[in-house]
Structures are given as C-alpha cells and as structure tokens.
Nucleic acid binder design. Structure first.
Lengths: 221, 221
DNA sequence: CGTATCCAATACATGAATGTATCGAATACA
DNA sequence: TGTATTCGATACATTCATGTATTGGATACG
C-alpha cells in the first residue's frame, strides 16, 4: 500500500525516530529468533538495541506491534527481492537451453534462494504462522503476505519455464505452493539438525525430491 | 522403549497419581493448543483439569516436563495407530485393483488420516518443532519421533503400493517425507483459513497436488 | 545563540506467575 | 476400624515483566 511512501517520507516522523525504530526492529529480529516472542521481554530487545525500555514505549504500544512491524518489513524486503531478482535469473535462459533435471533444479533453487535461506527468518516466520493459527486477524495478514509471495513466485516460475519451452501440467500456483512448502520444511529440518547456517543447496530433501517433482509436473509446451 | 511397561505398571505409582497425571496432560493438551506453551500458565492448566497448582508441582517439575510428557504420549498413540491401522487398509487392495489417480489418492489419504487430522495436535506439534529448532536436546527427541513415524509410514506405503503392483521411482522415505510435509502444511492452511475441524479430505492443496505427485513418482513393478 | 520541542532515560506502582513450605484429606494397609 | 502414608490444597514469599508518569538531554529552528 502506502508503506513505501511511509518508509521514505513520513508525516511527522523525524529521522531520529526512524533510526531508533529501525534499531529496535533489528534487535527484535535477533531476540525473537533466539527466544521466541513470548519468552522475549521488552527489556531484552531494548538492551540489545542499546536503549532502555523508554525507547520502546515511545515507539510501540506492545510487543506484538513490534513483531508485526518486523514481519511487514521482512516480508516486503523479500517480495521486492523476488520481483527484482527475476531479472538476474531469466536472461541466461532460452529455449535452446538443455532441459535436464539439473537445470530445472537450479532454476527453481535460484528462485527459492531469493526468499533467503535465513535461519532467523525461518524461525520468525514459523512463529508468525503459529500466532496466525490462533488468531484469525493475524491469519488474515499472514495469508495475504503468503499469497502475494506465492502468486508472484508462481508467475515468475511459469515465465521461466516457458522461456525454456516447458509448462506445468497442473495449476502453477498449486505447484509453487508445494515447492515452497517442501523448501521451508527442508530449511526447518536443516535447523533441527543443528546447521547454524542452513545450506539449502545441499539439502538432500530438496535436491533429492524437488527436481524429480518438478520434472514430473512439467511437460513441453 | 519401556514406556509401555511404565504405562501399565509403574514402580511406586499409585492409580490415583496416574489419574491426576493423565488429567493434567489432557488439560495441558487443550490449553497448550489454545494459547501456546509460553502463554499458558500452570494455573490455567490445573484449573482446566479441576485441580490447583499443588497437583501440578506434586507431579511435574516444570511446564516443559509436562509438555514433553504430552508430546510423548501423543506421539506414541499415533505411532501405534499407524502400525495397527495398516491392517484395515491393506486387505482391501490387490494387484487386480484398478490403479487410478483416485485410488492412489485415497490410499495415501487413508494412511495420512491415521496420523489424525486433529487441529490440536497440529498446533502442539508446530510448537514442539519450534522449541526443537531452538534447543538441540529437544531437536534430538523431535527428530527421533519424526523419523520413527516416517520410516514406519514409508514402509507401509511401499507395501501398499506393491500390493497393487506399483513401486516408487525414488527413495520411498523421501517421497513419504514430502507427502507428510504437504499434508501437514495443508492442515496448517486449513486452520489458518478458520476451519475449526480441519477436513483434509476436501483440502484443495492435498487433493489437487498429492495425487498427481504420487502418480508421477510411481511406476509399475 | 537561545529557545521550544521531541524523545529516550529513569523511577515507581502494579499485577501476575512461580516455587516452596505447610496443612488437611483421601487412600492403602494392617 | 485405626493408623500411616501419600498426594493435592492453601498460603506465603519472591521474582519478573509491564506500563506510566516524570525528568533530563538532544535536536530543530528562529
């Protein structure tokens, strides 16, 4: 909506205020990822940001508001990254490219990596989803983000496939959802296994199952 | 392990104690699902169970211990249900059965429903996973449950497929993991969309993507 | 350079959850 | 039935996070 405008030039928002808000959100990102929303106290966050609680109560009404500000910022970043990143993926491909499992796999992986294989984001998003499952208002905004992203990704994947002379045999959005789902669960599993920096490019579940999956759900145009 | 033995006859555990433990775990199941582990206070749980906090501190050392007791009980129940439920699925099938998308789909669905399409379990398990992602000790037990279940399910699915003259084109365990992943995320989405009683049999993401997925990942023996 | 405004720091009051120590009732057992 | 033991209820002390009201310093602006 007008969040971009707000970002660049807010009505009565001084640059000082914006800076502390950003630092608070940065700190919240770390602390929420480490301990979870509920276990995180306002003081942990402000301390991490180098403030006292006064700064928080001057900028936010509640921990939840801060959490949603964080979620919105990160969702926006990833959505924009997806829109822009496409330009760096598509140009290298054309109908002459050999369409093997490998190229299909790397094609999809490039898109997924735009989402960022970020341990912290995975944790925060899992918590966002959990909150959403318990609160229909939160669910509405979660689903909106999710669908925005998946629709965009589906369109991009479809474009990319067509540019190499392929198409999905079922609804592109359905396939995309499945891909995103598998990717996310692979990220979670990577974290569960103790990887501090998840490396999706080497994840057996992603490499082992996504390429045959994609392969089997596409056909020549 | 010996949990079954413990269940039937514990060393110095009176039946009274066992009953209150069970009631506490039942109550915790509800409260944890409704509010989450951290938001749930000990008093909420004991009140729901018809006790005071005294009963809790007499039976458990911490909320976490209660949570893990709950998780273990439910995981065990589902594992046993899977082992036993197979008998009710396989007999109806043989190589003469027409192998259509529909039969494959319902075959898989029957197995998945053994896992139980339970809103509460979905929420509690999501939280278990989240705890596990932040604590390697919890991760170990989460992964153990998960792998036990998936290996068992993979073996059963493989059996079932063979009984109708099919086989997986890639590692059965990998396929199973993907199926479980998609199923779980469908359940989550169902909850996000406000279904109080998730009906997986009608979920578009499950019905729309799993059958073609299974179809494309199997071949005649 | 002086003044007004804004914003974060500080101090304080409040409420809530925890854990423990003790008490009383229910159960087991002789 | 009487007694011992177990287990849950009660009461208390403590800790911790929250939110607000006020203060002091930084920044913008004339």
């Amino acid at each position: 909506m007008s969040s971009l405008v707000e970002q660049l030039e807010a009505p009565g928002e001084t640059t000082r205020r914006r800076k502390t808000r950003d630092r608070l959100i940065d700190a919240a990102y770390e602390v929420f990822a480490e301990t979870g929303i509920h276990a995180a106290s306002v003081e942990m966050i402000t301390e991490r940001a180098g403030f006292t609680r006064g700064a928080f109560y001057s900028n936010f009404d509640s921990k939840e508001e801060l959490f949603f500000a964080l979620a919105e910022r990160e969702n926006r970043v990833r959505f924009e990254r997806l829109q822009q990143g496409v330009d760096s993926i598509l140009p290298g491909l054309d109908a002459a490219t050999a369409v093997t499992d490998a190229t299909l796999g790397t094609l999809v992986m490039r898109f997924l990596e735009l989402q960022g294989d970020d341990r912290r984001w995975c944790l925060v998003q899992s918590e966002f989803r959990l909150l959403a499952m318990r609160d229909s208002a939160v669910a509405a905004s979660y689903l909106e983000y999710q669908r925005n992203f998946q629709n965009e990704l589906a369109a991009r994947l479809d474009d990319a496939l067509r540019s190499v002379g392929l198409t999905f045999v079922i609804d592109p959005v359905a396939v995309t959802r499945m891909i995103v789902t598998v990717y996310e669960s692979a990220m979670q599993e990577s974290i569960l296994e103790g990887d501090t920096v998840p490396n999706m490019a080497r994840s057996p579940i992603v490499l082992g199952t996504l390429p045959p999956l994609i392969q089997s759900l596409t056909r020549p145009l």
